[in-house]
Simulated assay, not measured.
Amino acid sequence: MAPTNVFRFRPATIAAGDDRWFVEAWDSTLPYLASIGSTSQWQYVPSNLPGAVSKVKKMVTESDISAQKYPTSSPEVLEDGAVPPLDWSKAYVAEIDVKKENLPAALADKYSNIQGDVVAIPVGAMVLQGKSPEYVRAVIPEQDEKDPFIFLAFLMTDHRAGGLAKGSGSALLNIAKEEVKKLGLKRLCGDCWRGNGRRLVGYYDGQGLKAIGDFDVPKNEQDSWEGAVTEWRA
């Protein structure tokens, strides 16, 4: 049996350059998606699209600001009625220690100049927010006063890391579920692409996030991005 990867988790920050790494990791998913027939999930290279780069930087920046405004994850940060603040946000990085001699070829140059025989490399990323994005609101509102939630806005694995990243997505989702509990809530929501036979929907289902509704985001006059909203309950 292959050994289980052991990850550390830390806040993603602008100071650490995590916004740039988020985009690199996003780029790394494209060859993998092509290999499983999911090319339509992302039809562009994120690093080549200013809007995608700005979106990622904004998420990490908002997490930095939220960490100052809400330094603890506890019911005390909630607004009246136990509704999360709409500007609450937490961005995470999952890291793993690896000997330089075992670095994947795709990352060897990036970390070869770091001192020491062992380096910590980021392999997974996640962003949690206190509100849903506009494109899912045909299924869930911005926030729900009767049934409040935390929204999983971003979850990514760096495919350049190969087997070193295995399990990081599941580990990050466990952190998300713990955040929900720390805030005194019962609900984690998110969204994902539902194309290619709902393969990604099935992954989230296996992680406990069940599909609760579908939506479509128009890309042009002929085509749309097919999504599903998912939900986990404590």
Rank of each mutant, 00 (worst) to 15 (best):
M1P: 09
A2F: 14
A2C: 09
V6W: 09
F7M: 02
R8F: 09
R8C: 08
I14L: 15
D19S: 07
D19C: 04
R20K: 12
R20L: 15
W21D: 12
F22P: 11
Y32D: 08
L33S: 00
L33D: 11
A34K: 15
A34Q: 13
T39D: 15
T39Y: 10
Q41E: 15
W42S: 06
Y44G: 05
P46W: 09
S47M: 03
P50Q: 08
A52S: 15
A52V: 07
V53N: 05
S54F: 06
K55M: 11
K57P: 09
K57E: 13
K58E: 15
K58A: 15
V60N: 10
A67F: 03
A67C: 08
K69A: 01
K69C: 00
S74G: 06
P75Q: 03
E76H: 08
V77S: 00
D80C: 05
D80F: 05
L86Y: 08
S89A: 12
S89Y: 07
K90Y: 05
I96K: 01
D97Q: 13
D97C: 08
K100C: 00
A106K: 11
L107W: 03
L107P: 02
S112H: 12
S112I: 06
I114F: 11
D117Y: 10
V118M: 06
P122L: 10
V123C: 04
V123S: 04
A125L: 11
A125V: 05
L128N: 00
L128K: 02
Q129S: 10
Q129A: 12
P133R: 08
P133Q: 05
E134D: 13
E134F: 06
R137V: 00
A138E: 12
A138L: 13
A138W: 10
V139Y: 07
I140V: 15
P141L: 04
E142Q: 13
E142K: 13
Q143Y: 03
Q143L: 02
D144L: 00
D144H: 01
E145Y: 07
E145D: 13
D147W: 08
D147I: 03
P148G: 08
I150Y: 03
D158Q: 00
D158H: 01
A161T: 12
A161H: 00
G162V: 03
L164I: 01
K166F: 08
S168A: 13
G169W: 00
G169K: 00
S170Q: 15
L172W: 05
L172Q: 10
L173R: 00
A176K: 04
A176P: 06
K177L: 03
V180W: 13
K181Y: 08
K182D: 14
K182I: 03
L185M: 04
L185H: 09
G190Q: 01
W193G: 07
W193V: 07
G195L: 01
G195Y: 04
G197C: 04
R198W: 05
R198G: 06
R199G: 03
R199W: 07
Y203S: 13
Y203F: 15
Y203G: 10
Y204V: 02
Y204Q: 02
D205M: 09
G208L: 01
L209H: 01
K210N: 14
A211E: 15
I212P: 11
I212S: 04
D216R: 14
D216K: 14
V217D: 10
K219S: 10
E221N: 11
E221C: 01
Q222S: 13
Q222W: 06
D223L: 07
S224T: 14
A228D: 08
E231L: 06
E231D: 12
W232D: 02
R233M: 13
R233T: 12
